[in-house]
Simulated scan of single mutants.
Amino acid sequence: MIFLVTRYLKDEDFPDSSTDVTAVGAEAFGELLGMPADQLADVYPLKREHAERFQQLTGIALDLEKYDYFLEPEAD
């Protein structure tokens, strides 16, 4: 499984950037989103309640005033 975090400018339909965060692992992302890691199969919006832990896991700070962020699992 590959995990990408994709960033969109607010009110835009096309991504501004996409970053591979696979190294963090499914277990950590499952914990972050409150679900079993083996059920991660959709696109998940990252909200304010995820921001601090997401930054701890990935080193990526979420600018939620300017962008919308989504965690996107993909089959490898």
Rank of each mutant, 00 (worst) to 15 (best):
Y67P: 01
Q56V: 15
K47Y: 05
A23T: 08
L64G: 07
A26I: 13
F70P: 02
Q56E: 13
Y69D: 02
E49C: 07
A61H: 15
P45T: 09
L40G: 12
D16I: 15
Y8A: 04
Q55M: 12
P36Q: 12
L62G: 00
T22M: 10
Y8M: 01
L62P: 03
K47P: 06
E52W: 11
P45V: 05
F29W: 12
L33M: 07
E49I: 14
Q56L: 14
E74A: 14
K47H: 14
K47F: 13
F29V: 13
P73D: 03
H50E: 04
E31D: 15
D16V: 07
D68L: 00
D16S: 13
E52P: 05
L71R: 02
F54L: 02
E52Y: 11
F70T: 09
E12M: 14
Q39V: 07
D13F: 12
P36N: 08
R48S: 09
Q55F: 08
A51H: 11
G59S: 09
R7G: 08
M1A: 13
D42L: 12
G59K: 08
P45D: 14
T19N: 06
R53W: 05
M1D: 09
A51M: 07
G59C: 00
D63E: 10
D76F: 13
Y69S: 01
S18A: 09
L64K: 06
E72H: 08
Y8Q: 03
K66L: 15
P45F: 11
P73L: 11
T22E: 04
Q55G: 08
H50A: 06
E74W: 06
G25R: 02
E72A: 02
G34H: 10
E31P: 04
A26K: 12
P15N: 09
R48W: 12
E65F: 10
A28P: 06
